[in-house]
């Protein structure tokens, strides 16, 4: 809108016209809109601020709303980069293909989920099958997985959270959680509850781990037990890891590439690590 007005008005004055047109065009070269996952949002904001310090003429608009919101905005062309905490869905890809658009996918970081229990709990490792049974209500007592005779209290995030969906997909094989699961509005509430409930189990992002809760080692089918650490997540040994993506339209490559390259550079990846995510290398 703004651009339009600037271009029109100076028609009375050719010199001003050229000058203003320059101004109008210059920012559009580096003005980019980024929208999507709330998980990736803090990382993008952090990187955006650092990027703007190096490129003061560039302009970034970063907004959240969820992975689905970001990707549908990309289809409609109201964002230049879509942030997503999951891979683009088949259905979304079909929409893009129908609209004749080609998008490129970039993995910018990884996010690992840690399964946590109360520090007083002697159990320190579980298999994926055991986790699935616990979160689906098939195993209800810690002694069934080698712990004390104590009822298992299962904490989960609210249904609106991307973390909820990822855990369901990765650990529960897309089956539903049991209905009596305790759902907490925020990661902080899960930590607080697990810390004060002896029989508790829950899941949080790697960045939120603290000494008040105990993180479990997890083994998927056919793999060994690995603790949730940045190193184990980077070398692919720890299984509950999801990539965080940027999607952009191929025709916008020139516009968005500088920022993405910055995030992938060592300086950008340091921000990833500082933000509690797992860097690419």
């Amino acid at each position: 809108m703004n651009k339009h007005i600037r271009m029109k008005r100076p028609q009375t004055n050719p010199f001003l016209c050229v000058l203003l047109a320059l101004f109008a065009v210059a920012p559009s070269l580096s003005a980019q809109r980024i929208k999507g996952s709330d998980t990736v949002l803090p990382l993008t904001q952090e990187a955006g601020e650092a990027f703007l310090k190096i490129h003061p003429r560039a302009s970034l608009t970063v907004t959240g709303g969820g992975s689905g919101v970001g990707l549908s905005a990309l289809v409609e062309g109201v964002t230049d980069i879509a942030m997503a905490s999951r891979k683009i869905k088949f259905g979304e890809q079909m929409k893009l293909k129908r609209a004749g658009q080609e998008v490129k996918e970039v993995i910018v970081a990884y996010d690992a989920l840690a399964v946590i229990v109360n520090p007083g709990n002697p159990v320190s490792r579980l298999t994926r099958a055991q986790l699935e049974a616990i979160f689906r209500g098939k195993i209800t007592n810690w002694k069934q997985v080698g712990g004390e005779d104590r009822k298992i209290v299962v904490y989960s995030r609210e249904t609106s959270s991307g973390t909820y969906e990822f855990f369901k997909e990765s650990v529960l094989g897309n089956k539903n959680y049991m209905s009596s699961i305790l759902s907490m509005p925020a990661t902080g509430a899960i930590i607080q509850s697990v810390r004060q409930t002896p029989g508790a189990i829950g899941y949080v992002g790697l960045a939120y781990l603290n000494p008040h809760v105990k993180a479990l080692s997890v083994a998927y089918e056919g793999g060994g037990f690995y603790a949730p650490t940045v190193t184990n997540s980077m070398n692919g040994k720890y299984p509950i890891v999801r990539p965080l993506y940027y999607y952009y339209n191929v025709k916008d490559e020139a516009l968005v590439r500088p920022f993405i390259d910055y995030l992938l550079s060592p300086a950008g990846q340091k921000l990833v690590r500082d933000g509690g995510f797992v860097p690419l290398k």
């Binding site: 104590r150 607080q192 409930t197």
Partner: peptide, 19 residues
């Protein structure tokens, strides 16, 4: 409530969960 009442109830009534 989460920091005080919940642990209090859990201990008083010896519940598996205070929420």
């Amino acid at each position: 409530g989460l920091a005080v009442v919940v642990p209090f109830l859990q201990q008083t009534f010896d519940l598996p969960v205070g929420e």
